[in-house]
Design a protein around this nucleic acid. Structure first.
Lengths: 210, 210
DNA sequence: TCGACAACCTAACAGTCGTTAGGTAGGTTC
DNA sequence: GAACCTACCTAACGACTGTTAGGTTGTCGA
């Protein structure tokens, strides 16, 4: 057992490989580079993971886990706000607040756990088939949470429309990993922009709170 | 000279490598695979390109060329509509038409020349530094065209806001390469959705033509 | 004190990679 | 018909890849 290890070897491998995969891509990152990054040798990685693919899957799984957990946390906080018997807030402001909370959550996890989450957007598509098929169910589960959210917010839209709107929203949020600097920019402000953009477009500010 | 070659060797290499890079990624695509795809041997590629990197740069350059050319074509068609002395249409409908034309153009080239354009979104970030720095100026030129367009459409917005709005719009459009099937879906319809989404958000259909 | 086990390392395997030097078939030019 | 050029091919180079079999170290409970 590793009582005195501040952080276990497995965890250090995950952290390092996630970082390097996110920076350089999957194929461009060799096991020797990962190992060297944490003062290990390439062969040692096989004590913790059966293959490079399995390591990648583990990183990707943690990425969606983080996203899914946050989504559920936001839902939980929301429901506790209305615990006193009153049902959900169906007003325009209430709807906006709900969407904003989820957009902010998505963006916070995306940028806060960049190394684990960004891979799903940048590197996933070139991953080996076996890796993709192992992770797709988890991705689907997360996406369906958003589909349900949007369906509740826009009950008069068709399934197909909801699907496209979700993809457009995801595109706007996820593409931010290519340019948004979490150190410099204001993530809260960006979450507001995305939310308003999604709900009322570029129409002037003063007409946004309808 | 190659008068009788239906399509030159160089062109076949470009087409094949673009396709394979787009499907599998840069590092995952070996020169031997590219060569085999057009019944050549890997060494032969070096008659037309000095290195794998140079080949990649050529593919990327063509990608932006296609995008830039289309953008200018749309602008040209627009200005010819108003040739009879009347200045540009500044009405809401006119603005929408203009944006729609550019969104449709962007999406048409993006999906119509998928192999050349998609790389900029999916694979560019993991490319070697030398590749990126060679292509960045061309990308900047294309992006500045959009910045100017949005600035003209939204004169009361700050430079920073315009920048973010452009990135959000690009995110919504470009992420479609991950899911939009040009064979099945209706690109025109999608262009309309993106345009309206950008301008007036998810507000009900009947209030969109204001 | 001894065996067990977790957590590494060593050294090598077969394969693939980008790249290059030298060769060759066919067409053009003089 | 000789010289030349274009557009390839052949065969190999060193470097790097994921992976594995077998060894080493330190800590543990008994």
């Amino acid at each position: 057992m590793e009582h005195r290890a501040v952080v276990s070897g497995r965890e250090r491998i995950l952290d390092s490989s996630a970082q390097l995969f996110a920076e350089r891509g999957y194929a461009e990152t060799s096991l020797r580079v990962i190992a060297a990054d944490i003062d290990m040798k390439a062969g040692s990685l096989y004590y913790h993971f059966a293959s490079k693919d399995e390591l990648f899957v583990s990183v990707l799984e943690r990425g969606i886990e983080l996203m899914t957990d946050r989504f559920e946390l936001v839902e939980l906080e929301r429901s506790s706000t209305f615990d006193a018997g009153s049902s959900a807030d169906l007003s325009a402001v209430g709807q906006r607040d709900r969407l904003l909370a989820h957009v902010r959550g998505h963006l916070e996890v995306l940028h806060g756990h960049y190394r684990y989450t960004a891979l799903h957007i940048t590197t996933f598509r070139t991953a080996p088939e076996s890796v993709r098929s192992a992770v797709v169910p988890l991705r689907d589960a997360y996406e369906s949470k958003w589909t349900r959210l949007l369906t509740e917010m826009l009950p008069d839209r068709s399934k197909q429309e909801i699907g496209i709107l979700r993809l457009v929203l995801f595109g706007a949020m996820n593409s931010s990993i290519e340019w948004f600097d979490a150190g410099r920019g204001n993530l809260d402000q960006f979450a507001n922009v995305v939310t308003d953009q999604f709900l009322v477009g570029v129409t002037p500010q003063e007409s946004q709170v309808r």
